[in-house]
Write a protein that binds this DNA or RNA. Structure first.
Lengths: 211, 211
DNA sequence: CAGTTATTGACTAGTCTGGTCAATATATTA
DNA sequence: TAATATATTGACCAGACTAGTCAATAACTG
């Protein structure tokens, strides 16, 4: 049984990436309904006929992107997690770095997921809701698996602390991503400053060094 | 000299808000170029002719929204700042509450500014860039005016600390906004939990109470 | 009442849509 | 080499939707 997207996946990878990024860009910009296949082929540098040769129609293309996106995240973010790392700051730092890494290949991949979640075209809404559960739910618990919560000070609100840590990483990573886009700066993608942020927050949330 | 938008501004306020919110919603969803005036009038519950009676054309409507949005922020957020409040947590908490307040009238007003910043339709790009400078630059310094930085512990990185505070407020406010939208929950818009977050971060950033 | 203004929605000319398909180019096989 | 199969192209289509108009109607004003 040849898979549905056999033709597309036989293309050389560079072309696949061009098409994926062009399509993601357009879907992010315009949403499913108003996204233009003409715009996609123009941006990807292929002909109209080719696009509909690889994917039968617009909907299939969209669903492929959804699957592909979730698979990339699954294969990179979640399987790269080092479960021997029990410190939450290191864990989150490592996930953040992997995310930025993925974004060098597919710059808008996370924006695409966000926009897909917000999209409520009846054409694709049900499919998204279905797929979303499958990955995100199990991924969510992986993120916090084997974390050593005993490092936190007595009496501190751990849930709120974790929120602060996550929002800090989100905000900081967003700032770094802008750099990545505007000038593909060397050294970016390392999230070098994260350790400084982590230090500040550790001194706040963790027990004093040595009991 | 009657102002350009005289006709629109003579409408009863409830109708103005309906139209503004319908238009903002559509521009956020689709961007300037692909936003449909048909969709706007349908959502606002007015006729096509009326819309073009109030505003001459799509571009004028968009520019009005931009002006209006910036004016609302100017008149509410920035002029509501209490400059006698020197504590940064209280200052940011107060600004956050005002923001949520504004969002009960114009739910997507900040999303609109964000999407306008991202929009690069040549039709409206230059006008936006111009207006943006005017308000945001001066507003930015107002936010931090008269803040008592001496409360911060010696040796702490104040810039990073302020980033953490802002990202935490942003993340928390986002969470609260979702509640505001999904179930217009009573008590929301108070950001009650902000004080708890502030306490946690204060104990981290501020000097120990009493020298 | 007359005169002014607000509101309507059918209508237009034209753009853009997703998708097709016959023609062409390239790759594979014998 | 010829023959077959597959990949790629872009002109083309019917139909949806576009921003904006305008003559007709309704509502208000003095």
């Amino acid at each position: 049984m040849t898979p549905i997207y056999f033709k597309f996946e036989s293309l050389i990878q560079e072309k696949q990436e061009r098409i994926i990024n062009a399509a993601i860009k357009e879907f992010v910009k315009s949403g499913y309904d108003k996204a233009s296949t003409n715009e996609i082929v123009k941006e990807a540098g292929i002909s109209k006929g080719s696009l509909f040769h690889y994917f039968n129609n617009k909907k299939d293309l969209y669903l492929y992107l959804l699957d592909h996106t979730l698979k990339v995240i699954e294969n990179n973010i979640y399987t790269d997690i080092n479960f021997k790392e029990t410190d939450i700051f290191n864990r989150i730092g490592q996930i953040g770095r992997t995310k930025l890494q993925v974004m060098t290949t597919y710059p808008q991949i996370f924006d695409f997921l966000k926009s897909a979640a917000a999209d409520d075209s009846p054409e694709v809404k049900p499919e998204f809701v279905e797929k979303q559960k499958q990955v995100l739910a199990q991924g969510f618990e992986k993120i916090y698996k084997n974390i050593d919560w005993s490092k936190f000070r007595e009496g501190i609100d751990i849930e709120k602390s974790v929120n602060i840590i996550n929002w800090t990483m989100l905000g900081y990573a967003e700032k770094e991503k802008e750099k990545l886009i505007s000038y593909s700066e060397a050294g970016v993608g390392q999230l070098e400053e994260w350790d400084r942020y982590a230090e500040i927050l550790k001194s706040c949330f963790y027990k004093i060094e040595g009991e």
